[in-house]
Design a protein around this nucleic acid. Structure first.
Length: 340
DNA sequence: AAACCGGGGTA
DNA sequence: TACCCAGGTTT
């Protein structure tokens, strides 16, 4: 072992010790299995811990085992994911469960390379499951790790490949790979935060180059975001008796395969009569009932909600409170609520 | 390498 | 308002 490795080991040991006493009590830390790690990591992709905690508990009660998840329908899984966003994660998790049952004897793979063959499991998620659930020395790089390592080195985040190399060196020097990996993320989430890092509470502050240079608040520099394109969704609450008509969105793109009221999409706002002319159902008494703006990462979606009636019976119909089993975005739940 | 994919908490 | 988040997939 080189002297550098020796000091690196001491720093990592300090970080691991810190984690064992500072770790938040999170539901997926109570009982560690490959399946619980898979579900948690899928939910946590681009989503903050606080938003996942309750959803994880409900999801695990509904689908307690890989087998239970594999046997569910895609619509059931999407409905359980409702409101979490990035719905492709739910479809990938569902496909991964079926792959585990069909091709891996119902056992979650233990090595990162095999894990990465599962749908929705990339290098990060594979490394997280392999290290945290199974103790393997697999590296992970997420938003937290990138920021922590950049500040530790006192410079802007390196190219991805270099960050992965650094994470690989660290995890190979760790006493407990899973503990180190979680410690790096926990540090980024609770101490080495994007704004106002709490360096006084940091177990590795005395070795931090950004701290020494006083640059911890400016690393990393804010990213430039693409501007959101504006789109207009004209949603029509088509009533017959006390029910409304629902349709399924296309297989690809925003809210793929999720449910919505009959909708006419356009680049700009349409008049009511143009909306009516583009509906599949014959609608009478069409009138506007409101609107709102829904923001996603890449779009500014202007919802224009209209209501009308029809005598047609075609399509899928649901009464108030009969939509819980259908996968629907938060925005479309809001649209339905405008129907009174 | 860059675009696309949600939604909400936070300052 | 604009930032960020236990990223993955596709082009």
């Amino acid at each position: 072992m080189s002297g550098d490795d020796g000091s690196a080991r001491r720093r990592l040991a300090a970080l691991e010790r810190w984690f064992t006493q500072a770790a938040r009590d999170l539901p997926w830390r109570r009982r560690r299995t490959g399946y619980s790690a898979l579900v948690a990591e899928a939910m946590l992709q681009q989503t903050q811990v606080a938003r996942v905690v309750d959803r994880y508990r409900v999801f695990m009660r509904r689908f307690p085992t890989v087998k239970a998840l594999a046997e569910a329908s895609e619509d059931e899984v999407l409905a359980a994911w409702q409101g979490l966003g990035y719905y492709r994660r739910a479809r990938n998790l569902h496909r991964a469960a079926r792959s585990i049952v069909d091709e891996h004897a119902g056992r979650v793979p233990r090595d990162a390379a095999t894990l990465q063959t599962l749908p929705g499991v990339g290098r990060y998620t594979a490394g997280a499951i392999a290290s945290i659930a199974y103790g393997r020395p697999a590296p992970i790089v997420d938003g937290n790790v990138t920021r922590v390592l950049a500040r530790w080195a006192g410079r802007e985040p390196a190219a991805a490949a270099e960050t992965w190399d650094a994470a690989t060196r660290l995890v190979n020097l760790a006493e407990h790979p899973g503990v180190l990996n979680e410690a790096l993320m926990e540090l980024g989430a609770t101490v080495c935060t994007p704004v106002s890092p709490r360096c006084e509470a940091c177990p590795v502050a005395r070795w931090c180059e950004a701290r020494a240079a006083g640059t911890e608040a400016t690393i990393p520099a804010p990213r430039v975001r693409a501007t959101r394109t504006e789109v207009h969704h004209h949603c029509v609450l088509v009533r017959r008796a006390s029910k409304v008509s629902l349709e399924q969105r296309p297989d690809e793109g925003l809210w793929a395969r999720m449910w919505q009221p009959p909708t006419v999409e356009a680049a700009s706002r349409l008049t009511d009569r143009v909306v009516r002319s583009r509906l599949a159902l014959p609608v009478t008494g069409l009138r506007p009932v409101g609107g709102f703006v829904h923001l996603t990462t890449h779009r500014r979606v202007c919802f224009h909600v209209l209501a009308g009636t029809t005598r047609s019976r075609r399509g899928v119909w649901r009464g108030p409170g009969e939509c819980d089993d259908l996968a629907m975005s938060n925005a479309h739940r809001r649209v339905l609520a405008m129907g009174g």
